[in-house]
Design a protein around this nucleic acid. Structure first.
Length: 581
RNA sequence: GCGCCUGUAGCUCAGCUGGAUAGAGUACUUGGCUUCGAACCAAGUGGUCGGGGGUUCGAAUCCCUCCGGGCGCACCA
C-alpha cells in the first residue's frame, strides 16, 4: 500500500520535472508514513514541504497543485492538506481490508518477500572459543544472530550459518594443560593451580572423565618439574611465563600422543556441550568451521605468502608485519610472531579470504563490541588482497551486563565465575530468554538481572504475545465449524478495533523488510507486542462467537489472520507459539 | 590521549535516513470477570529527550562543544 502511494507520488514528481516546473539535480527524498493520529488519515506524506525549496513556493501551494491529481486516484476516499503542508490520505476501506484475504491465502508465507533476490549470504555468530561452556554473555549474540539469519531468509536471501571454532592457538593449550593439572590432582598429586589456568568446575569434570578412562597412566610427579618453572604471578613472577612453562612441560612429559588425549578430549567435550546448548536454545548452524583445518590445508601460509607477494608485509624485531596502517588501520599488525607461529589475525584473514573465494555476495560477522577495534585490520587485509571489503559487514553486539539484584556479576571463562547459558535456559526458559535478548537493539547495553528474570518471568512481555496466540487458539477450538478462508466479509469489520487491527496486520511485510535492512530484529519484537496489544483490546471489547454466522465468520477470519502473523513473527524471533499456556 | 557504543517518565527501554500534542512496559491510583482464557482490558499520575550552541519552515533525530557511563587501543583470542 505504502509502495503504491510512493510510486504514484513519484509519478507526479516526474511530471513536474517533465513540464519544467521543477528542476533539480538531486532526487526528491519525500516520505510516506503511516499516521499516528487517525484524524490524519491512514497515510501522510511530506512531499510538499520537501518540494518547497526547489520550487520556491510555499508547501501549501504545492500541496494544492498536487491535490486534484491525487484525488483522481481510486485508492483514496479523500485527500487532505493539513498543518504546515502535509498531505493526508484516507484510504477506501475495501482496499485497506484486502490485506485479510492476502494473509489467509499466504498463511505461513505471509510477510516474506524476495528483496534479497537469492543473493548468497554467509553469517557467522557466537563463535566463542571452546575453552568453556557458553555463558549468558554469549546468549545475546546467539539470539541476535539466529533471528537475523531468519530475517534474511524471509527476505529472499540464501543464508549459510556458520560457527567459527577457534580450536587452534595458545588458549587451547592452556585449556589442555589445565585439564591435565586437574587430572594430576585427581591422581593424588598436590599442586598450586596456575593463576592463568582455566579454573571452572567443568575442567574438573573433564579431568575426572579422563581419569576414569586412563587411571594414572598420565601421572607424573609434580615435584619433578614444578620447582624448575618460572614462578607464578601471586609469588611475584610472570603468569604468562609460568603457564607457558607448564604447557611445555605437559607436551614434553606426555609426548604428542599423550598430550593430544587431553587436548582433543577437552575440545570435543566442550564443543559437544556448546553444540547441544545452542541446539536446545533454538540456535542452529549449517556448518561448524574449524580453525585448525585452515592450518591443515596450509591456507594460512598461502594467504600470508599472497600478502608478502603483494608487497604489504615487512620484517621487524624478528616478526612478520602486515602494513595495515596504510589501508585504514591505526597501526601495523603482526601476522607471524618472532617464534615463527602465526597470530590469530593471520588465520582470521585466511578464514575471510576463504569465504570471499567461495563467492558469497555478502558476509556478516556478529562480534562482541569489545572486538570493534579489530574491524579495520580485517578490512585492510581484504583490501590488500584486492577483495571488495564492503562485502564484509561486521555487526557489533554490546555486552550484556549481568546482575543479581544490585550486584554486578563478572563473567570470565578463565576464572570460572560465570552463569551459563544452560542454567539461564533452565531458570527462565528458552522463549523468555530469546525474547528478552532480542527485545533491545543490539547497540544498546543490556542489563540482565537474574533476580528479575526469575522472579518476574511471568511478566516477561513474551507471555503477552504468546497469550494472544493462545487466546486465539482457544476461541478457534470452541468454535465448532471450520473458518472459511475465502470470500472474506470485510464490510462487516468496520469497528474501530477491527480497522486498527487490520492496519497493524498490513504493516507486517514492511516490518520484515525494514527489520532486515536495518539488521534490527528488535523492531519485529516491538511490532509483535503492538499487534498483540491491538488483539487484546479487540478481544476484551468484542464477542467473536456471536449468533450471526456472517459476522462470526468475519471476526474469526480476522483473528485467524492475527494468528498467522503472530506465528510467522515469533518463528523469526525464535519463540514458540503455544496453543495453551 | 585516540576510537566505537551510549545518556529519553521513579525503573527498564522504543522512537534517531528531521515532520503534526515525545511513546511502550513496569511502578503508583482507580474501575472492569454469571459472557469466547483477568498471564487481559479501560482511565489517570509521571518527561528542561544529559548541558550549551548551530543548521532548518520544523531537531529527541543532523553538525559543533562540554559533562557522565560502557568497551577497546597485544608478537591474547
Amino acid at each position: 500500500m505504502k509502495d503504491q502511494i510512493e510510486s504514484s507520488l513519484q509519478g507526479l514528481v516526474d511530471n513536474l520535472i517533465a513540464d519544467g516546473s521543477l528542476t533539480t539535480e538531486t532526487s526528491i527524498g519525500f516520505q510516506v508514513t503511516r499516521t499516528k493520529d487517525p484524524a490524519h488519515g491512514n497515510f501522510a506524506t511530506n512531499i510538499a514541504m520537501i518540494l518547497a525549496k526547489p520550487m520556491r513556493k510555499s508547501p501549501r501551494d504545492i500541496a494544492n497543485l498536487l491535490l486534484p491529481k491525487l484525488e483522481q486516484n481510486a485508492l483514496f476516499e479523500r485527500v487532505e492538506i493539513a498543518g504546515p503542508g502535509f498531505i493526508n490520505f484516507f484510504l477506501v476501506q475495501e482496499k485497506s481490508n484486502a490485506i485479510l484475504q492476502q494473509i489467509l491465502d499466504a498463511g505461513e508465507h505471509f510477510g516474506t518477500n524476495n528483496s534479497g533476490k537469492e543473493q548468497s549470504l554467509h553469517i557467522e555468530y557466537v563463535s566463542a572459543n571452546p575453552t568453556g561452556p557458553l555463558h549468558v554473555g554469549h546468549g545475546r549474540g546467539a539470539a541476535y544472530g539466529a533471528s537475523l539469519a531468519k530475517l534474511y531468509v524471509a527476505n529472499g536471501y540464501r543464508v549459510h550459518r556458520e560457527y567459527y571454532v577457534n580450536d587452534a592457538g595458545r588458549q587451547m593449550d592452556i585449556l589442555a594443560t589445565s585439564v591435565w593439572l586437574r587430572y594430576l590432582e585427581l591422581c593424588g598429586e598436590e599442586l598450586t593451580f596456575p593463576s592463568n589456568g582455566y579454573k571452572g568446575d567443568y575442567v574438573w569434570d573433564i579431568a575426572a572423565t579422563a581419569h576414569r578412562a586412563h587411571a594414572d597412566q598420565f601421572k607424573h610427579a609434580v615435584a619433578d618439574f614444578f620447582a624448575a618453572l618460572p614462578v607464578d604471578e601471586p609469588l611475584g613472577g610472570d603468569k604468562e611465563a609460568h603457564i607457558d612453562g607448564l604447557i611445555a612441560v605437559a607436551k614434553k612429559l606426555l609426548g604428542a600422543e599423550g598430550y593430544s588425549v587431553f587436548f582433543d578430549f577437552a575440545i570435543d567435550t566442550i564443543l559437544d556441550d556448546i553444540r547441544d546448548d545452542l541446539g536446545l536454545f533454538g540456535v542452529d548452524y549449517d556448518n561448524w568451521y574449524s580453525e585448525r583445518s585452515l592450518f591443515a590445508d596450509q591456507r594460512v601460509e598461502k594467504v600470508i605468502a599472497r600478502l608478502e607477494t603483494a608487497g604489504h608485509t615487512y620484517r621487524k624485531d624478528g616478526a612478520l608485519w602486515f602494513a595495515s596502517s596504510k589501508l585504514g588501520d591505526e597501526k601495523d599488525r603482526v601476522v607471524i610472531r618472532e617464534n615463527g607461529t602465526p597470530t590469530y589475525f593471520a588465520s582470521d584473514i585466511a578464514y575471510h579470504v576463504d569465504k570471499l573465494e567461495q563467492g558469497y555476495d555478502q558476509i556478516i560477522n556478529i562480534w562482541g563490541a569489545d572486538h570493534h577495534g579489530y574491524i579495520p585490520r580485517v578490512r585492510a587485509a581484504l583490501q590488500a588482497l584486492n577483495f571488495d571489503a564492503d562485502k564484509l559487514k561486521v555487526l557489533l553486539v554490546q555486552f550484556a551486563n549481568l546482575y543479581r539484584g544490585e550486584e554486578r556479576l563478572q563473567m570470565s571463562t578463565r576464572s570460572g565465575e560465570f552463569v551459563t547459558l544452560r542454567s539461564l535456559r533452565k531458570e527462565v526458559g528458552c522463549d523468555a530468554a530469546r525474547f528478552y535478548y532480542v527485545m533491545r537493539k543490539s547497540e544498546q547495553h543490556l542489563d540482565f538481572d537474574l533476580e528479575l528474570a526469575k522472579s518476574t518471568s511471568n511478566e516477561n512481555p513474551v507471555y503477552y504475545v504468546q497469550y494472544a496466540h493462545a487466546r486465539i487458539c482457544s476461541v478457534l477450538r470452541q468454535n465448532q465449524e471450520a473458518v472459511a478462508t475465502e470470500n472474506v466479509s470485510v464490510e462487516l469489520l468496520s469497528d474501530d478495533n477491527e480497522q486498527q487491527l487490520m492496519q497493524k496486520l498490513a504493516d507486517y511485510p514492511e516490518v520484515i523488510r525494514s527489520a532486515c535492512s536495518k539488521q534490527a530484529p528488535h523492531t519485529l519484537v516491538q511490532y509483535l507486542r503492538e499487534l498483540a496489544q491491538r488483539f487484546h483490546n479487540y478481544y476484551n471489547a468484542t464477542q467473536f462467537l456471536v449468533d450471526s454466522k456472517e459476522l462470526r465468520q468475519a471476526r474469526l477470519q480476522l483473528i485467524l489472520a492475527v494468528q498467522h502473523v503472530l506465528v510467522n513473527g515469533l518463528a523469526i524471533v525464535g519463540v514458540s507459539a503455544p496453543e495453551k499456556m
